[in-house]
């Protein structure tokens, strides 16, 4: 297994100033992670926990007021290492779409409403490859056929397509150049259940075709269960737990993850679904200590003052909770 993207101690804040009032929103606070080539890596969490911000930083697509205060993000392509936080225009043309691509949230509006689908494909392809209009159309036609999308969409305008079709077209547009690393932000959220299934299927197909890496960001644990190999759970701008999908679903350690899993519907049991008490904190003024403590039923005094470290519970499983830390220390000393 080789690492394809690596983030270290990443801190990204929104810093705004207007009429003398300064606001700092700590949307990503000290996150470190490594994503391996060929895996499907899930990033989970409630809305407003910093998922999308993390994604922007990992993509190297951030602009003021979002500022990376500290930390590094590096892409590893074969032997080449590229700093994702300082991409030059040349870098962008080389990397984006041909190596790193992005399937956006809410694809309703990502397609230019006054441009035909084939022209959007043409714009995106010719940015990265020296091909003519006819060749670009050929590439597009072939790829859409491979993915089982009707050729008629090419001449259509976005508003003429259904929501599901638009999302599929967007996935095709994002992956047309066979990128190694694909980020997908809530790819199924605005779609109805039947369409969701098709989109998940399509994502799986696209990922497996060339063994690409897929970083999947969604609040929907069901989608994660379906697609992800590993999952990182984000809470208030921090990773609270990270493990393989099976462990997260069957044996979560962090109280927040446990809540997330309990809130999922189960077919085989009739147990009541538990929703998480309280609301996620405002990130311009996060709670002291463990950011989850105001909502945590197990919180102890320490949680209110000291921020827990993300420790390795066992290889491949990390969690940031004082209770878990104490248990681990107990187990090793006993």
């Amino acid at each position: 297994m080789t690492t394809i993207i690596e983030a270290k101690n990443l801190k990204a804040y929104y810093i705004t100033q207007a009429y003398g009032v300064e606001r700092t929103v700590q949307a990503v606070d000290n996150i470190s992670l490594e994503i391996q080539e060929g895996e499907v890596f899930g990033i989970a969490g409630e809305s407003g926990c910093g998922k999308s911000t993390l994604l922007k930083v990992l993509l190297g697509a951030f602009e003021p007021p979002l500022t990376v205060v500290d930390g590094t993000v590096e892409y590893h392509f074969d032997s080449e290492r590229i700093n994702a936080l300082a991409l030059t225009d040349q870098n962008l043309r080389d990397i984006r779409w041909s190596k790193v691509s992005y399937i956006p949230q809410g694809s309703m509006h990502v397609l230019n409403p006054v441009r035909r689908i084939r022209d959007s494909f043409y714009d995106f392809i010719t940015t990265h490859q020296q091909v003519g209009r006819r060749e670009s159309l050929e590439i597009t036609r072939k790829y859409l056929a491979d993915l089982g999308l009707p050729e008629s969409v090419l001449a259509a305008y976005p508003h003429q397509l259904s929501g599901g079709m638009r999302q599929r077209v967007t996935i095709a547009l994002a992956t047309i150049l066979w990128p190694k690393l694909i980020f997908a932000d809530e790819p199924t959220t605005a779609l109805d259940v039947v369409v969701q299934r098709g989109v998940i299927q399509l994502l799986k197909e696209v990922q497996q075709r060339e063994g690409s890496t897929l970083v999947l960001i969604t609040h929907d644990m069901g989608v994660h269960a379906n697609l992800a190999d590993r999952i990182a759970v984000l809470y208030a701008g921090k990773i609270v737990e990270e493990a393989d999908t099976r462990t997260i679903l069957k044996n979560p350690r962090h109280p927040y993850t446990q809540y997330l899993i309990k809130s999922l519907p189960h077919l085989d049991e009739r147990a009541e679904r538990v929703s998480i008490p309280g609301r996620p904190p405002a990130l311009d003024n996060p709670p002291t200590g463990c950011r989850f403590h105001p909502r945590c039923p197990l919180a102890i005094d320490k949680c209110r003052t000291i921020d827990p470290d993300l420790i390795t519970v066992r290889p491949g499983h990390r969690a940031a909770c004082h209770l878990v830390t104490e248990e681990v220390i107990h187990a090793t000393t006993a």
Partner: peptide, 28 residues
């Protein structure tokens, strides 16, 4: 807007974004 941000993210040349994405929609 989403489509301009997306085209920029794909590194579509600024000139193209300006004419076919920004101005074209500003016109309407």
């Amino acid at each position: 807007s989403d489509y301009v941000t997306y085209a920029e993210m794909a590194a579509v040349p600024k000139r193209k974004v300006l004419f076919f994405y920004v101005t074209r929609n500003t016109m309407l």
